[in-house]
Design a protein around this nucleic acid. Structure first.
Lengths: 261, 261
DNA sequence: TTTTTTCACACAAATTTCATGTTCATATGT
DNA sequence: ACATATGAACATGAAATTTGTGTGAAAAAA
């Protein structure tokens, strides 16, 4: 609970800055410092950090939006770094679907990362992923072979993207794919807040014998910019118990096995 | 200088344990704890860490050698994690060879890692590597495109190996390759303490227009188990000023440009 | 120009993280 | 059954990180 306190405090400032920036196009050092009750030096450091990440551009007295428009996705992921309890419960359930000897693919994301953390008692797994954080956390596990797809490192996200990654996935067939998503909608299908990873995800649903979607309740009944597959492409959904009854019903009607934890 | 003190202290314990283990086949918690003047709890933690890395196996009261024999290479790298000053000086010189717009390949290793840390003022670089640590440290640099080759994650070393990696490199041609090595010998050539990365390195010398070898003086006049290329395959050598005069001479005679820093 | 504001850098204070040691209930081997 | 080893929980001090403050330089405003 308090284990994320300092991270979130800093993160919260960055989110506030980006939200304000997104609304007004420009923010002041002084103004933000007062609003968040920290020194101007701290806000300057925050601005520099966000500029380094390419999300804004410094100007005298404040900052303006960068021409590269990643604001929406940035906010999306920065905010969603919460709901850890749900994600961990989902991860434990997901890990139970994995048998010794399986070849599995982990999509990128915090939930799939949590699944990777639950594999300590598994044996002889082959894990493939395009998420460097997942590869790193499994690096020292004695009986898991980890394969990283290769590709262009996506600025600030620790994942590999582009045609190298996509071609790799095209030649791949694993037992289980653990898929994540930004938004799930009964009629629109499953979508993501950015295009680059979307291309990868749409290939993933054809790269495994069983496609397992992991997503906490906050992702449902939403639509994000880039659709990558239909609900019917999924074999199983693992989510938490705060998902609405009607939503669960309509998913079950699509022929998807659903587990709420 | 003191910034690595704690790391080295812990690292020193691990090296001692592995050396003793290598000599006697088994070590005791009590014995090691006394010898290194730390608590048994610390030694247990060390044993657990080494077991997690696959270098030994815990038994009651102590530890025995793991069946996987990586001891030699482990000791090699653990010990060589020193000489940071030299490595940093070499890295600064190496970075000067890089021009804006270059496509470069970084071999794995601590020296090449240091080069990656010296790129802050470069622009429009394309960096390719099979070393995840290097990819990670460059991850947030705004004007560097980082490409990771893909491959099997090598247990405990954070690098990618195997046919996936090798095939990737076969189809590659960069401006400059920064190569590292475990051992350099005037007549035997350039060699490495393990086979898996050796295969990659031998491909690397054909994958760039200019091959630059970076190595501190401790690597010279040594032979390691797996040779991967000849001295004549190298275009430039960057090393420190403690290299012997005769060695420098015979390298220069092979037609290699040599820089001592 | 002069004045004011903003900035970057250096240093200090506060806070967090981390390695290690200690204690204690439980496991294990003889 | 006994002695020892173990792992978990907690304490502690050191190191690293984050934040705040002050100062002189640089930039904007007057």
């Amino acid at each position: 609970m308090s284990e994320y306190a300092s991270v979130n405090q800093a993160n919260h400032r960055l989110v506030m800055i980006m939200e304000k920036l997104n609304k007004y196009g420009r923010v002041d050092v002084q103004e933000i410092a007062q609003e968040l009750d920290v020194s101007t030096a701290t806000i300057r450091r925050d601005f520099n950090e966000l500029e380094r990440q390419g999300h804004l551009r410094r100007v005298h007295g404040g900052a303006v939006l960068s021409n590269v428009s990643t604001t929406f996705e940035y906010l999306y992921h920065a905010k969603v770094a919460l709901r850890m309890d749900e994600k961990k419960r989902i991860a434990i359930q997901a890990a139970e679907e994995i048998q010794d000897g399986d070849a599995i693919f982990f999509d990128s994301g915090t939930t799939t990362y949590q699944i990777a953390m639950c594999l300590s008692d598994k044996k002889e797994l082959t894990v493939i992923t395009y998420d460097m954080s997942i590869a790193t956390v499994l690096n020292n596990h004695p009986s898991i072979q980890v394969i990283l797809t290769g590709g262009i490192v996506r600025q600030g996200y620790n994942v590999l993207v582009g045609s190298i990654t996509e071609n790799f996935i095209r030649n791949m067939m694993v037992d289980k794919v653990f898929l994540s998503a930004d938004a799930i909608h009964a009629s629109f299908g499953i979508s993501n807040a950015n295009y680059v990873e979307s291309g990868i995800k749409s290939l993933l649903v054809s790269a495994g014998k069983k496609i397992i979607l992991v997503a906490d309740h906050s992702k449902f009944d939403k639509i994000a910019v880039s659709k990558f597959c239909n609900l019917s492409d999924i074999d199983m959904l693992i989510t938490d118990n705060q998902i609405s009854h009607s939503m669960a019903e309509s998913i079950r009607e699509s022929g998807i096995e659903i587990k709420c934890v």
